[in-house]
């Protein structure tokens, strides 16, 4: 159990700005899974997502003084960096060239299952297997969505960000977020039903 668990992100940032790596380390522990998921959903690759996570935290640490808490939360600021880093990787010429010449198949990711909403206990093996199948169908369909739709939907459904937070991360209006999520859902339902 971490020593700084009771501290808010803002308190950790103040200490980290004073030079405490340990306080920044708590922020890393707190957000890495979310950051990894977002990077993975954009890059579609475990290795690239890991690179993005490392580079994004390093960038955040170096630019901690530039973080303006009146404009965003640490979470949304970090996710903005992660999204930009991921997009840079995906659109890089080197990456496109590697993808073109390589037939590397992305391995199956580790999956995290929600607990039973009524008992709060882990789901039984049979339900997990069925959810796993459902996930793979969904994952395949998600990859066919445009990046903006996919990111907006996953930030809402998997990371539980509010529409305002998603708008900050993606630097668009709230009504654009509403449209992106709606279109993503509509398209995803069509793809899964095919």
């Amino acid at each position: 159990m971490g020593r700084f668990e009771d501290l808010s992100d803002q308190e950790l940032i103040i200490a980290a700005r004073g030079g405490s790596e340990h306080h920044f380390g708590e922020l890393v522990d707190r957000h890495t899974t979310m950051v990894y998921r977002v990077a993975r959903s954009i890059t579609g690759s475990h290795e690239e997502a890991e690179d993005v996570v490392q580079e994004s935290y390093l960038r955040a640490f170096k630019n901690l003084d530039k973080f303006d808490e009146s404009k965003s939360t640490f979470k949304t600021w970090l996710l903005t960096i992660v999204r930009n880093q991921s997009i840079n990787i995906v659109s890089s010429f080197r990456r496109k060239a590697l993808k073109f010449f390589s037939d590397h198949e992305e391995g199956e990711p580790e999956l995290e299952f929600a607990s039973n909403p009524l008992t709060q206990e882990p789901l039984d093996a049979e339900t997990q297997l069925s959810l796993k199948r459902q996930y793979h169908a969904m994952d395949k369909a998600l990859k066919k969505l445009p990046e903006r739709q996919r990111t907006a939907l996953l930030l809402r459904s998997q990371e539980s960000l509010s529409y305002d937070e998603i708008a900050t991360v993606m630097d668009i209006s709230v009504s654009s977020v509403e449209s992106l999520i709606f279109r993503a859902r509509k398209k995803l339902i069509e793809l899964v039903e095919r």
């Binding site: 580790e110 796993k132 459902q134 998997q158």
Partner: peptide, 8 residues
């Protein structure tokens, strides 16, 4: 479906 299973 999106909430119950996520990459981890």
């Amino acid at each position: 479906a999106l909430t119950n299973v996520k990459p981890s």
